[in-house]
Simulated scan of single mutants.
Amino acid sequence: MNFLNEPFLKVKDYSVSGEEFGLLIDENLQLLKTYPQPELSELSKYYESEAYISHTDSKRSLFEITYHFIKQKALRNKIKLVERWNGGKGTLLDIGTGTGDFLAEAKRNHWKSVGIEPNENARTKAKLKGICLVESLTELEDNYFDVVTMWHVLEHVPDLENQIKELKRVVKPNGVIFIAVPNFKSYDANYYGKYWAAYDVPRHLWHFSKTAMEKLFAKQNLKLKKVLPLWFDSFYVSLLSEKYKSGKMNLFKAFWIGLQSNLKGRKNLEYSSHIYIFKNS
């Protein structure tokens, strides 16, 4: 990777620390890197917030209630998508399991599944749902899983290239890998700029484009087969971005920007977030 020294953009951590970080760009990969990246020993403190919704099951507000309602439909859709590409059920690894809802849905659908989740609080909640968890990828056998999933997790991983090597190692030949990440080339990213909530520095260490995803995974002979939009993400991200920009959640403005992002995405195929589907070859 070859990142320019001058920041592509300067972004603030709006949800926890209030600190400012730079985003450096690798122009060949069209990949952004958060700089400076916190030391591994320091990363956990940036997740210490009740507002970090992927680590909580709480439904204290209309926003959280709506989030979890839509999340349930999204979980069912993800299982259908995985089964369609796998040609049925099988062995599944979910990295960044959070509170375990995706694997709980997989278990209900008779998948043999395992999860990895570094956050202790989220891990405890996942275990209460009967989820099987391991500490790290190093515990897992080579070429064991039919499917590996990372739903909005790759952007959090410190050692990006080694992570992709490990995905290659644990998935079966002809196995399928599903990766969901935000897209900094989207309309809502361009509209909100430094206020775009999906930058989420420094928890998001990397910021991807379609070019970056295809090139990074091609290095491990993982072939990109399909890119799909995550329609809801533009509305969710726009709502948070409005809060960061104006200090309040402007529901109607956020809905309009989210809608615009999806409509423009239908033309230029640059949505707020994408699901990338890779085949091991």
Rank of each mutant, 00 (worst) to 15 (best):
T149G: 08
T149A: 07
T149P: 08
M150T: 11
W151V: 09
W151Q: 13
W151Y: 07
H152V: 10
H152Q: 15
L154C: 07
L154H: 04
H156M: 14
V157I: 15
P158M: 09
N162H: 14
Q163H: 03
I164Y: 06
R169L: 10
K172H: 00
P173R: 00
P173Q: 12
N174P: 02
V176W: 03
V176I: 12
I177H: 00
I177T: 01
I179H: 01
I179L: 08
A180N: 07
A180V: 13
A180P: 03
V181N: 02
V181Q: 09
V181A: 03
P182K: 11
P182L: 10
F184G: 02
F184L: 02
K185E: 15
S186C: 07
A189W: 14
Y191C: 01
Y191T: 01
K194S: 05
K194W: 09
K194E: 12
Y195C: 01
Y195F: 11
W196A: 00
Y199A: 00
D200T: 12
D200C: 12
D200R: 11
V201W: 15
P202E: 10
R203E: 08
H204R: 00
H204V: 09
L205K: 08
W206Q: 12
W206Y: 14
H207P: 13
H207C: 11
H207G: 00
F208V: 06
S209I: 08
S209L: 14
T211S: 14
T211V: 15
E214F: 10
K215Q: 09
K215M: 14
K215H: 06
F217K: 00
A218D: 14
A218Y: 13
N221W: 00
L222T: 00
L224D: 14
L224A: 09
V227H: 10
L228F: 07
L228H: 07
P229M: 00
W231H: 11
W231Y: 15
F232E: 14
D233F: 12
F235N: 02
F235G: 04
V237Y: 06
L239Q: 09
S241I: 11
E242F: 02
E242Q: 14
K243M: 15
Y244V: 13
S246M: 07
G247D: 02
K248Y: 10
A254Y: 08
A254Q: 05
W256Y: 05
I257K: 03
I257N: 01
L259V: 05
Q260R: 03
S261P: 05
S261W: 03
L263N: 08
K264V: 10
G265V: 03
